[in-house]
Design a protein around this nucleic acid. Structure first.
Lengths: 341, 341
DNA sequence: TTGAAAGCGCTAACAA
DNA sequence: TTGTTAGCGCTTTCAA
């Protein structure tokens, strides 16, 4: 039972009265919408400080028909790439005085997608950032009305809505070429769940192989759990034809290495394994992982910048990332010379 | 230049007119605040569907003086424990129809703390969850007004505000005892940045040591970056008195192991290293990490539950976690028999 | 059970 | 430059 003592928070009318001006005048100094005589402005500012007044974002949003909230919709919030991207968006948004809401959509189940979209729309956010890394993200994008500023964040280019992209296919291509240049006849690929039929990582891998005149071998399909990588690693250990493996992300690569080792093979002596993303632990791994750096934080920041443009009615252009950076460490090496085979 | 075509979204008055009832009646069926004659209710529902009407959360919040938004304030969003906790809160909140906003406070700089708190307060959220894992979290808690429902999430108990806790000291104690029971004379500790003078992990470690009659050796201080663990690992390698190391979290443990190995030592043969949290990659590591499982997701969920209680004016009790679960894997073993010493 | 009237706290138009 | 007057889209009295 809280005491009734709590003096109800000051509202704009209280400030106006104390400052001896009208309510709109207070609003004007608050928003800077129009000039106010310096002296009155001072009085208003004093009153605000004295009453410890804070404008209600809710009332503002209702009256001005625009909020200072942006919504992020994502398949999850805790995985490395997602978390970092969200961090990037939040950081930029906060610097700009925006509040960010997060809504997770775990599956492509129409009901769930619908419900999440409704939750977001009900807040009438000033803009929406959709993490289009996975099928739920794609589904959300489809059912989001287009009369509100939207920016997608993705690993592959598309002309759907404005989007900040990290060119995964180029990165995957470079990584695959690295392996090929080491002398491997072919490179196998462990794919993480793609956002559509094919993701940028797989595309780049395939492209590099084709260019080298090598027929892409069959894919291994992993889930997002590192454990699934371990299972695949064990499986790979039984296939002597595999000398180099390109994994969809670093966590899976770590799992694959674990599986390979459990089966008695060593990396990179018996098989080279490379990851993707440059996870903070990639360098700590034994052997340290060869991978490609993905700037997810920067990606998020760029997404917000695009969104800011869209929100201010600007004509939006798409961005593309800087070139991905290959990080060569210890998990990749030349193949063991074959004993005939 | 968007066409003016976009039919402005339907508002409650449109629904009322179409259904042939008054606005308050529509509101009543929406909120369930009062009984409405079944037939009218049907007409209202039909009108809502037909107009594709969505109530404005903003207007609702203003009129009813209560929002359906809860705010999470955290030191960061991407680190494992934080990200998982946030996931837990968001999941529960979403199931309850709440929108969640995230605000990051990176330092204890009063201006930054003030600004973030203001950003949160301006939204007049229905409740606030503060991740009190670090100094910024503690600072936020101090400058947050108490006339709004607040729940803290933490690793150590305190009577400040209602809080969901994960009993870190018990877990750390169990882990330290495990090492001691293996035959180690003492256990060294690599601490991660504490939220206050001392954190639960360090406290538990110290307690177990004291209980065993061992004087706690000097601490090693790490940052949150795994790399800092590696540096410490190298340092430890030069100290032959160290046979067992308890690290503040799994990432740091991985770094320490890396550093130890770089210096030519092997784990657990030369020194045992245990982590904390049971990070998804802990099992993939070589050697697989001995650690203690922390259910951050559940922690977040419990925090929301507490908050829901507080929001509905309930008398709030504190929760405590279930007992932490020790996960013994390969990185801990009996010390090497000494060659005299 | 229902409608009329009165706000919620603010910004937008419009005169003055 | 400033105040008056109208709302924003909803919920909440209060009568009926």
């Amino acid at each position: 039972m809280a005491a009734k003592k709590a003096p109800r928070p000051a509202v704009i009318a209280d400030v106006a009265k104390l400052a001896g001006v009208s309510v709109p005048t207070v609003s004007r100094v608050l928003t800077g919408a129009a000039r106010v005589r310096p002296e009155k402005e001072r009085r208003v500012l004093d009153a605000i400080a004295q009453l410890n007044y804070r404008p209600s974002a809710t009332a503002r949003a209702l009256a001005s028909r625009q909020s200072h909230t942006i919504a992020i919709i994502a398949g999850n919030t805790s995985q490395y790439g997602y978390a970092e991207t969200i961090r990037g968006v939040e950081e930029e948004a906060r610097a700009d005085g925006y509040t960010v809401t997060i809504t997770v959509v775990e599956t492509t189940d129409p009901d769930e997608v619908e419900r999440a979209v409704a939750l977001v729309l009900d807040q009438s956010p000033a803009g929406v950032v959709v993490l289009k890394f996975d099928p739920p993200g794609v589904a959300v994008l489809t059912s989001l009305p287009r009369d509100i500023p939207i920016v997608a964040v993705s690993g592959v280019k598309s002309r759907d809505v404005p989007q900040a992209v990290l060119d995964e296919s180029r990165a995957a291509e470079a990584l695959t070429e690295h392996l090929l240049s080491l002398g491997h006849r072919t490179v196998h690929h462990v794919r993480v769940p793609p956002s559509r039929r094919e993701d940028g990582r797989t595309t780049g891998w395939r492209r590099a192989l084709k260019r080298a005149g090598v027929e892409p071998p069959e894919l291994y399909e992993a889930t997002w759990a590192p454990e699934s990588g371990r299972v695949i690693g064990k499986e790979i250990a039984h296939n002597p034809g595999v000398t180099a493996v390109f994994c969809g992300n670093d966590e899976i690569a770590m799992g694959v290495i674990k599986g390979l080792r459990d089966a008695g093979l060593s990396v990179p002596e018996d098989v080279s394994v490379v990851g993707f993303d440059d996870h903070p632990l990639a360098a700590m791994w034994s052997p340290a992982l060869t991978t490609v750096r993905q700037d997810f934080g920067g990606l998020g920041a760029r997404a917000f910048e695009l969104l800011r443009g869209a929100m201010s009615g600007e004509v939006v252009r798409r961005t593309s990332s800087a070139l991905p950076e290959l990080v060569i460490r210890e998990s990749s090496a030349a193949p063991r010379p074959l004993a005939e085979s």
